[in-house]
Write a protein that binds this DNA or RNA. Structure first.
Length: 380
RNA sequence: GUGAGUGUAGCUCAGCUGGCAGAGCAUCGGAUUGUGAUUCCGAGGGUCGUGGGUUCAAGUCCCAUCACUCACC
């Protein structure tokens, strides 16, 4: 049963893929959609006008980071996260579950929750499922994620089972902790490691709970490439059709195309933003590293098929110069391009799905060609 | 002209009482999947100014020479 703050409507289908409309407190977006990552309340190197220009309709921020600094109460005092970062559209916050994985060295998980040693002041801070929800509701975000434990790969079956069961208990505590009337929807997260039966079991178990959407988590943690799509393929069919499906932290453009083909609606990933800051660009002609000397005299745009401000205005040679010189303009222009590439991909996916399975199939083939290393391999 | 100092990787420099030539930056390549990320990993690159000498062994000690820098005439 959905709360009034969130609704999802499926519009077109092509095989397992689908387009839809997701309505949240701060607006409606078309799916499949990609959310740029703005961990600390900022999509690194961009301002909100830039984010809008890329075509993004929704952004992701992080509970853990905003809790540690500047603090959710401080943000609430300043009018909530939307006003604080001057973003009018929907915001989803990750719960801090991924930090249990990525900050493993600095935290200790118990049944009660997770103790983190803050890198800022060395203080221990305790994040419980209840607090994770409280923080996200205090921030006033559109979608809160339940606190889960993101498990490392590889992990033995017993460890995965124990962890996933605890994630379920935490999930129920998150639901119980919700404020009755709230502008914040809550999404659950499917875990289960890389065991197909555990994935299915967990999906079936939590689909019965009162949640506004369902995420597939615990993927892209170092596993072999094929494993990711295998788990998506296994879990997605067991999630309700009338709720959005969100694949957390994924991924490369070709991963997204494949996941959409398997029924996923929502994505986020640091790759386009981080990669841009390190000089790596996604283009219609493949991946480009702007540092390479081969672009020194290249007066062509980054991506001849792209209409973003960066590609309309500057040459590869200039962008390389900016990057090599450490100019602040470089990360901005490159991030602008990568996010535009991702948003255009989502638009094309929506159009392809609306046109039917053959269009989607041809887009899948094209996407595999963008990755040089895997350009010759057959899509799974 | 006199005195002193400095010459080692593209650049800035380490290299102790002799023991297989080093770092940072730069260059080149790779990684990055719910951001601890302006990050991480790797590679190429030097006849140690030049010529002699001492020594089993010299970037290192000695002599000569060249270049540059500074100070004083």
């Amino acid at each position: 049963m959905a709360t009034p703050c969130s609704s999802f409507e499926e519009i077109h289908r092509a095989g397992a893929a689908r387009t839809g409309k997701l309505t949240l407190s701060h607006g409606t977006l078309s799916t499949p959609a990609f959310m740029p990552v703005g961990t600390a309340g900022s999509v690194k190197a961009l301002d909100p006008r830039d984010i809008v220009a890329t075509g993004a309709e929704m952004v992701l921020a992080n509970t853990y980071h905003l809790w540690v600094r500047p603090g959710h109460k401080q943000i609430a005092k300043l009018g909530g996260l939307h006003r604080f970062m001057n973003w009018d559209g929907p915001i989803l916050t990750d719960s801090g579950g991924f930090q249990i994985f990525s900050l493993k060295k600095f935290c200790k998980v118990t049944e009660e929750g997770c103790r983190f040693r803050s890198p800022l002041d060395g203080e221990w801070r305790f994040l419980s499922p209840e607090l994770a929800i409280e923080i996200q509701e205090t921030l006033g975000v559109d979608v809160a994620m339940v606190l889960d434990e993101c498990i490392e790969w590889p992990a033995d079956r017993e460890r995965v089972q124990r962890s996933t069961q605890r994630t379920t208990r935490w999930l129920k505590r998150c639901i119980a902790a919700r404020q009755a009337p709230s502008e914040t929807a809550v999404f659950g997260i499917v875990q289960g490691g890389f065991y197909e039966d555990l994935r299915v079991e967990h999906a079936q178990e939590i689909r019965e709970l009162q949640l506004d959407g369902f995420a597939i988590g615990g993927l892209s943690v170092g596993e072999p490439k094929e494993e990711l799509l295998r788990m998506v393929e296994v879990a997605a069919p067991h999630l309700p059709r009338d709720k959005p499906r969100y694949l957390m932290g994924v991924g490369y453009p070709w991963d997204i195309v494949e996941a959409v083909s398997r029924g996923v609606d929502l994505f986020d990933c640091v790759l386009p933003t981080r990669s841009a800051r390190f000089g790596g660009l996604f283009t219609s002609v493949g991946r480009i590293n702007i540092k390479h000397a081969r672009y020194k005299d290249d007066s062509n745009p980054l991506d001849p098929a792209c209409t973003c401000y960066t590609c309309r205005s500057f040459s590869r040679a200039y962008l390389r110069h900016l990057f090599i010189s450490g100019e602040a303009l470089a990360p901005r222009l490159l991030t602008l391009h990568n996010l535009t590439f991702y948003q255009n991909l989502m638009k094309r996916l929506q159009e392809a799905i609306a046109s039917g399975p053959e269009s989607l199939e041809s887009l899948r083939k094209e996407a595999w060609g963008w990755e040089r290393r895997f350009g010759d391999s057959t899509p799974c």
